[in-house]
């Protein structure tokens, strides 16, 4: 399916995004939150900023999820063709497939009669309820092809082996391939590059974790996806050889900056991944026509929500402001 749209068709969408951009967090907003006396005063500041309502104090996670959902609803409302942005959220669909499948298999093994829905995430392309119902009825015809394909490839493995981790690896790999494929279908260089960065950083994360936990070749063969700017074969071999070799290999690639963060810690590397994506999209604030500002806005809000979670979690654990500053993500504005 080709989803090419003229850049000028985004005039309305970009203007709406521009009108919403002043609501993004600034450095001083983040500084205020980081410097908040304690968790409670951080929540009060969030209320003043309009991020949460007073009744949300009991369940901040749900409030932040709602915030993320509103961003997607805005994009859905303004975008001339929302399917070009699918690559941004398709990983949530794979998460939901994972959750539904595991819950379904557990239900069969334990003799329960209800597929749990607590771990579903949004926004997603397909309603999680649809996946849940399809699994219950074993009728997948109404599901999109990528969901059918994912269920077909994972269901048997899960039933046969009851190995949840193996199912996770298969679905994560399918998600990465799906992101790259959807991006390619748009024919938009910016989207293709964004998806490439998402896949590359995911690959490095997988290789890093595999090396730390001593996973074998078979795991990496399944879990890593093919990318244009980071060779899968070399990454796999370096990962199998050990952490020093993996870092040395990363240093020889266009992503050499990642090496220092990998050597530092997993959380430092996670931050680098998000900041890399932000650096890639930040020039979209000067673009008046095209899908770029929409993608940048979504990524900016996503980074804000991550930062918000980090700040609140650190405040909850009474970490000093310096420790929080090291963890918060780069801002768009």
């Amino acid at each position: 399916m080709n989803t090419r749209i003229k850049d000028t068709d985004y005039a309305f969408a970009v203007a709406r995004i521009r009108a919403n951009e002043p609501g993004l967090l600034t450095e001083s907003d983040l500084d205020q939150l980081i410097s908040a006396e304690n968790y409670s005063s951080a929540l009060r500041m969030l209320e003043e900023m309009g991020w949460i309502e007073s009744e949300d104090r009991e369940d901040i996670d749900a409030a932040l999820k709602r915030h993320g959902m509103r961003v997607w609803e805005l994009l859905n409302e303004v975008s001339p063709n929302i399917s070009v942005l699918d690559f941004l959220i398709i990983k949530n669909d794979f998460h939901n497939i994972k959750a539904a499948l595991k819950s379904f298999v557990t239900m069969h093994v334990t003799g329960g009669n209800q597929v749990l829905t607590d771990s579903f995430v949004s926004p997603s392309i397909v309603y999680p309820e649809m996946i849940k119902n399809a699994l219950s009825l074993k009728k997948y015809d109404e599901l999109p092809d990528f969901v059918q394909d994912a269920i077909n490839k994972t269901y048997d493995v899960l039933i046969r082996t009851l190995d949840g981790q193996l199912a996770d690896i298969i679905l994560d790999s399918l998600a990465l391939n799906c992101i790259a494929e959807r991006a390619e279908n748009t024919g938009n260089d910016f989207i293709i590059k964004t998806a490439e960065l998402m896949c590359v950083t995911a690959n490095i994360k997988i290789a890093y974790r595999a090396t730390r936990t001593g996973k074998g070749r078979e795991f990496l063969e399944t879990a890593l996806c093919v990318t244009k700017t980071l060779d899968k074969r070399q990454l796999l071999e370096a990962s199998l050889e050990g952490m020093q070799e993996l870092i040395a290999y990363i240093e020889s690639t266009p992503y050499k900056d990642a090496a220092a963060y990998l050597a530092e810690s997993a959380s430092a590397f996670e931050k680098w991944c998000d900041d890399l994506l932000m650096s890639h999209v930040e020039n979209a604030k000067y673009i008046c026509f095209g899908v770029q500002p929409l993608i940048a806005y979504y990524i900016a809000k996503d980074a804000e929500i991550k930062s918000m979670r980090i700040i609140l979690s650190c405040k909850h654990n009474n970490l000093p402001p310096e420790a929080i500053r090291e963890r918060v993500r780069k801002l768009y504005v």
């Binding site: 000028t8 005039a11 309305f12 969408a13 970009v14 203007a15 709406r16 521009r18 009108a19 919403n20 303004v78 008046c288």
Partner: peptide, 14 residues
């Protein structure tokens, strides 16, 4: 028409 689309985007927010 093109400017009107963008203008409508801003007016719908403010």
């Amino acid at each position: 028409g093109m400017t009107g689309e963008a203008a409508a985007g801003v007016v719908s927010e403010d």
